[in-house]
Write a protein that binds this DNA or RNA. Structure first.
Lengths: 329, 329
DNA sequence: CTGAAAGCGCTTACAG
DNA sequence: CTGAAAGCGCTTACAG
């Protein structure tokens, strides 16, 4: 019932090679036969099957995005940038979701081995140097987003600087006892952001107090959730002596934090991180990461490499920007 | 460099058939050769290629989600339910994003023809009856989410009832002049929600006033955005005589509406729609759609059909639920 | 501009 | 438990 290239060739009175050429736009087909083939194909509802094409041509015009959790605001924004570029370049998108429960490296390695896609976009996949080197051996085009390793193209934002800017902003506004609403400490972005926070305090000659860095108890998605933020802020508000202001590791946690302040009736200025679309509407001061741009640019970069494999490896690092809104007034 | 089944077979001193069997868990392989093959494969970093497997076996353990816009809160939640089920069943996920600029039917048809996946999940893809019937001819497993057509399995929520419940809720609270913050009128969910809104007014003997149904001017994503909500609420707040309360077509629009009220200093009770995770933290009353459950269940349904193609077609319709929070106090 | 033929890397009856 | 061989539906030099 589903027709193949043989059926079309037969009905159109040409060889399968010609049918293939028609669908691949190899110019060397006469207008006449082209029209004929297309008509027959349309009639039969025929289109080359991806798997057969992929096997025969060794490429499939597909890019695979490998992400830790699909339903997260950060990935959503990055993905939309990816989508835009992919659509423009007529590539298809595949998404692979590594599960938190399994070994990340093994999952990633498995995906690459299967050769699903022509190229891979790794979003917020954090591995150690040895593992990245091992992945290089597969000699597959990979672009890293929100991660840095000199052996692959990468697009990232300076997390240390972002956290530093947020903290300095609070410090300059006159607040001295500043808490950091954190998340799972082992996560790389958190480690960097804590470092930036520390660096700012240091510059102002203030001591770094372990107890001012607090996270919630819900560690789903490493604690980067409304709930994680809510729980942490509840704790922060009971700190003694009271805290003057708070730097939150993400906007989504800040949303929870805002709720915690409302519920307890205690308010302190807060700054978030990411600048997700919502932040503007919630009046949340934040550190902007150009998420869409990152996705867009990383994709462009990857496709360039697909077309020119010997292209020099490039590292792109964006500078995060402090956006002041009402939450710090 | 990348090794194939032939390399592994040779190094392990067996036939390619045996290697294939090892990777497909067909039990009839001795422990000994199995171990040997696996060792060689591991050493060589080998894993069967999806495209070759897909072509030879005519199946690829992949489900494709076809969505209108990937970065949207509703899809995000639905997708996370899909992911959970897929991971459990060891299927892979592919996402195809139909672009608003093109003809939806053609894009969808194209995807099906290419036979990317074993089965398809259509999320919020609205076609007319004739088009659905045409799609049936391809005889491909499809499950509809947030759409209804008797020829395919479907999982949806009763939008009319949801809007009805929201409006009745406002009416019972004593508000009479109720606006509806709407979006692109041609969108199917909007048509249904307007119908439910109308039905509730009718039940209370109130007239339906065209001018009380307003949308913003930004129609990106059919107006289901913070901005769309903001713009619409600004208009609503200038209506004369003033409106008593407002039913918003989505939570994300309600976020924009909240901001509009803050900016203008005029406040009216509002109810959103969806119950995205944020709603709870923003104290937003809303109509809950079990988004994750819908994704999860639709996926389960699809996989069952994959395993048993002659299974009877089923329609699942969830009942939306009114959740009251502070935005209606 | 077009066709015959080899090949892509697997799976799967069919034998044994 | 294992192998030889056909076949999946395409693409792509190679000829002409």
């Amino acid at each position: 019932m589903a027709s193949t290239i043989y059926d079309i060739a037969e009905k159109a009175g040409v060889s399968i090679a010609t049918v293939s050429r028609v669908f691949n736009n190899s110019s060397s087909v006469s207008e006449k036969t082209k029209t004929k083939v297309l008509a027959v194909a349309e009639e039969a509802g025929y289109h080359p099957q991806v798997y057969a094409q992929g096997l025969a041509s060794k490429k499939n015009n597909t890019v695979m995005a490998v992400v830790p959790v699909i339903s997260n605001y950060f990935f959503m924004e990055v993905l939309s940038g990816i989508q835009d570029k992919l659509t423009e370049m007529r590539y298809e998108l595949n998404i692979f979701n590594v599960t938190a429960s399994g070994n990340i490296f093994e999952q990633v390695e498995h995906v690459i081995k299967r050769r699903w896609a022509d190229g891979y976009l790794f979003i917020s996949i954090h591995l150690d140097k040895k593992q990245w080197i091992q992945l290089q051996k597969y000699n597959v085009p990979i672009t890293l987003v929100d991660e840095y390793f000199e052996g692959f193209d990468s697009v990232s934002v300076d997390n240390i600087q972002g956290a530093y800017k947020a903290t300095i902003g609070l410090l300059k506004a006159g607040y001295a006892r500043i808490a950091m609403l954190s998340a799972e400490e082992s996560s790389k972005p958190i480690r960097d952001r804590v470092a930036g926070y520390k660096m700012a305090l240091n510059e102002f000659g203030l001591p770094f107090c372990e107890e001012l860095v607090v996270r919630g108890d819900t560690l789903y998605r490493d604690g980067f959730t409304e709930r994680g933020g809510y729980e942490a802020m509840i704790k922060i508000l009971t700190l003694e002596p009271p805290v003057d202001a708070c730097f939150c590791a993400s906007d989504i946690q800040a949303v929870g934090a805002l709720k915690a302040m409302q519920d307890t009736g205690k308010f302190i200025p807060i700054i978030g991180y990411d600048d997700i679309e919502l932040a503007e509407y919630m009046g949340l001061s934040t550190i902007r990461q150009p998420m869409r741009d990152m996705g867009f640019f990383a994709t462009q970069n990857l496709i360039e490499r697909l077309k020119n494999p010997s292209k020099a490896i490039s590292q792109t690092i964006y500078t995060p920007e402090l956006i002041l809104r009402s939450s710090t007034n």
